[in-house]
């Protein structure tokens, strides 16, 4: 890898810009897409690799190429700077997520409790609109307070976030589903909310709950059967 390619690759990563690194395996020649204009088949492979977040191999004019996607990290937005969040945030970082914690309660969302983490103190709906969850974003609400959780979920449900999870018992969730239904969300859409949040591993402590949440986020991302649940309804209490 030449210094130019390395520098361009690292610059793209720092700017959170998706790029694909293409290597001609015969001689090690490399280029970055979309920085370099490429013949149709290579550009298509690069685009597909980035979209699917999966490396590709292709042969063009008898030459083997390796197409290596470098996407920006997945994001996790944690609503509620609570005890469980303190356990969840470092776990998510280790798993490769860029983490943002949202909580307008400044006493909770402090640099002391979340060293080095991006903290957002706006009201949760404004914060969520600004953060604009996309297909590479997971959203977890942990405040257990409808005033804070509901507006965040409202925005999350209107986004393409790949995972939405909400802390709270089945009963709490049934009430939440009823409130969100009043806001105009359809039953099918509300089925996107994983609640009670996390895989059922009978978690008790904050780190155990964080582990169950992180496991469910990964299971959802990877399409594991474990992540699929029956859609909850207001009648499920």
């Amino acid at each position: 890898m030449t210094p130019d390619i390395l520098a361009a690759l690292q610059a793209a990563q720092a700017a959170k810009r998706p790029v694909a690194l293409l290597t001609r395996l015969g001689d090690g020649q490399q280029c970055l897409w979309p920085d370099t204009a490429l013949p149709g088949a290579l550009a298509e492979a690069a685009q597909a690799a980035l979209r699917d977040d999966r490396a590709q191999n292709l042969t063009l004019d008898g030459e083997a190429w390796f197409v290596h996607p470098h996407n920006p990290p997945l994001r996790l937005i944690v609503v509620g700077a609570v005890h469980i969040a303190q356990a969840l945030v470092p776990m998510a970082q280790t798993t490769g997520f860029a983490v943002t914690v949202v909580d307008p309660r400044r006493a909770w969302a402090t640099a002391d409790r979340f060293p080095g983490i991006t903290l957002v103190h706006e009201w949760t709906d404004d914060a969520m609109v600004a953060l604009a969850p996309d297909v590479r974003t997971a959203v977890v609400t942990l405040t257990h307070d409808p005033k804070l959780d509901d507006p965040a979920l409202d925005v999350a449900l209107r986004s393409e976030a790949f995972y939405i999870g909400a802390l709270g018992s089945r009963r709490t969730h049934a009430k939440r589903v009823a409130r969100l239904t009043e806001l105009g969300h359809a039953e099918g859409a509300l089925g996107r909310i994983h609640a009670p949040v996390g895989l059922n591993i009978e978690a008790v402590t904050a780190p155990e709950i964080a582990l169950s949440i992180m496991a469910e986020v990964v299971a959802t991302r990877r399409g594991a059967a474990l992540a699929r649940r029956a859609a909850p309804t207001a009648a499920a209490a």
């Binding site: 290597t23 999966r54 490396a55 191999n57 390796f66 290596h68 996607p69």
Partner: peptide, 17 residues
């Protein structure tokens, strides 16, 4: 030196890339 997995078949523990 950098080594990169470029192709796998069967049960390889680490994916391409």
């Amino acid at each position: 030196a950098l080594a990169t997995v470029v192709e796998t078949w069967g049960s390889s523990p680490r994916p391409a890339g």
